[in-house]
């Protein structure tokens, strides 16, 4: 009787591959909650960095020191791109909630491209700034903070590509089952929020 039951279970369309890989057969899916907890912790990593930056800012007379000024135009455009990408990725999430896998792919691809443009802009800025990592304590902070954030953007882009890659399989994501999609989106929002704080600290507070 029990064996019969087993066949029925696997027989009626439940996809063992994905859920088993995640190891979540017998309880709810808490991956989103886990990710949020992790991101909370991750944000404190940036918190430590920001606190250190503010201490250096407070204890240095002219901030940023002369000859290491930042430019504002390009980063502002970059900021607009990154912030709007958060809305774009949300369209992808809404699409899969309606069961529209193609919509998911399109919007996620758009987000990834925006992320790549952002990273390109960042690299361009590095190349044109005229000072390097080791110039003074401001440039130390500048490169480490933006670099560390850029690393997170890169991870976010890879996650998005991961979601797109997985969406090839029929019915891997559908209206009911799309935790991976949601996680990539949450991570992307996180990267975005960190950037806004970073932008204020590095680009806005240095103009005043």
């Amino acid at each position: 009787m029990t064996i019969q039951g087993t066949f029925e279970e696997t027989g009626n369309g439940a996809k063992p591959s994905h859920t088993e890989a995640a190891g979540h057969e017998e309880h709810g899916d808490y991956r989103v909650l886990g990710l949020l907890t992790f991101l909370f912790s991750e944000s404190l990593m940036f918190g430590g960095l920001f606190a250190a930056y503010l201490v250096y800012r407070a204890s240095t007379e002219t901030w940023p020191p002369e000859s290491t000024e930042v430019e504002l135009l390009l980063p502002a455009i970059n900021t607009i791109i990154l912030v709007s990408s958060s809305f774009v990725i949300h369209r992808g999430d809404s699409a899969i909630k309606k069961g529209d896998v193609n919509g998911l792919r399109v919007w996620y691809l758009a987000t990834a491209l925006m992320g790549i443009v952002f990273l390109g802009g960042q690299v361009y800025e590095y190349l044109t700034l005229g000072y390097g990592l080791t110039t003074n304590v401001f440039s130390n902070c500048f490169y480490v903070m933006t670099g560390f954030h850029g690393l997170h953007v890169l991870v976010g882009v890879l996650l998005i590509f991961g979601v797109m890659w997985r969406s090839r399989r029929t019915n891997h994501y559908n209206a009911e089952k799309h935790t991976g999609v949601e996680m990539a989106e949450i991570y992307w929002h996180f990267v975005d929020i960190i950037w806004i704080i970073l932008f204020v600290l590095l680009y806005v507070l240095t103009q005043i």
Binding site: S41, A52, V137, N140, C141, V144
Partner: peptide, 21 residues
Amino acid sequence: TPVLAIGLVLLLFDINFGTGF
């Protein structure tokens, strides 16, 4: 823990990459 991690990463930069945190 993340705060320690970032402190140590900065120390790593100071040792190896010429920064002056």
